[in-house]
Simulated assay, not measured.
Amino acid sequence: MHPRSLRHRMEKAAKLLVIIQKHTPEVDCLFAPEKGEQGHVVCEFSGSGMSRSNILQLGKDLEARGYQFTRKANPWLGQLSYTGKADEKPTIILSLPVVKDRVAINEDTPATPYSFKEA
Rank of each mutant, 00 (worst) to 15 (best):
E11Q: 10
S5T: 15
G66K: 12
V18R: 04
I19V: 15
H23T: 10
H40K: 00
Q57M: 09
P25K: 05
C43E: 00
S5D: 11
K12Q: 07
Q38V: 05
V18T: 11
V41P: 00
V27C: 01
L56M: 08
K22C: 08
F31P: 00
G49R: 08
L6Y: 09
R71I: 06
G36W: 08
I55V: 15
Y67I: 09
Q21L: 13
L58M: 08
L56H: 10
F31D: 00
A14I: 04
H40D: 00
I19A: 03
G47Q: 03
K22H: 12
Q68D: 09
S46E: 14
E37G: 00
I55S: 02
M10L: 15
N54W: 14
C43P: 00
L62E: 02
L56W: 07
R65S: 14
S46A: 15
Q38D: 02
L6D: 06
S5P: 03
R52P: 01
A32D: 00
K15W: 13
M10D: 06
E26W: 09
R52L: 13
V18A: 04
A32K: 00
H40Q: 03
N54M: 15
K35T: 15
K22Q: 13
M50E: 10
T70G: 10
E34F: 14
L6E: 08
S51K: 14
P3R: 03
S5C: 07
Q68F: 13
V27K: 02
I20F: 05
D61F: 05
R4E: 11
V42T: 09
S5N: 13
K22R: 10
A32C: 01
S5K: 09
P33A: 07
T70C: 10
L6R: 12
H8T: 15
Q68S: 14
G39C: 03
R65D: 14
F31S: 00
I55Q: 05
L17W: 11
V42Q: 00
I19Q: 05
M10W: 11
Y67C: 08
V42F: 01
P33I: 10
E37A: 06
V18H: 06
L62M: 13
A64Y: 11
K15N: 07
G59F: 08
R7A: 09
A13M: 04
E34V: 14
E11S: 09
V18P: 00
K35N: 13
C43D: 00
Q38I: 01
G66E: 08
S51T: 15
H40P: 01
V18M: 03
L6M: 12
E37F: 04
L56K: 12
G36L: 09
A13W: 02
R71N: 03
Q57F: 11
R9H: 02
R71Q: 04
K60R: 08
L58V: 14
M50R: 11
L62A: 05
M10C: 12
V42Y: 03
K15F: 11
S51M: 14
D61P: 03
F45G: 04
L58E: 05
K12M: 12
G39V: 07
V42C: 00
E34I: 14
L6P: 02
E44C: 05
A14D: 07
N54D: 12
S46N: 06
L58D: 05
E37Y: 07
I20Y: 07
G66N: 10
Y67S: 02
S51L: 15
L56P: 01
H40V: 13
D28M: 04
S48P: 04
G47Y: 09
Q68T: 15
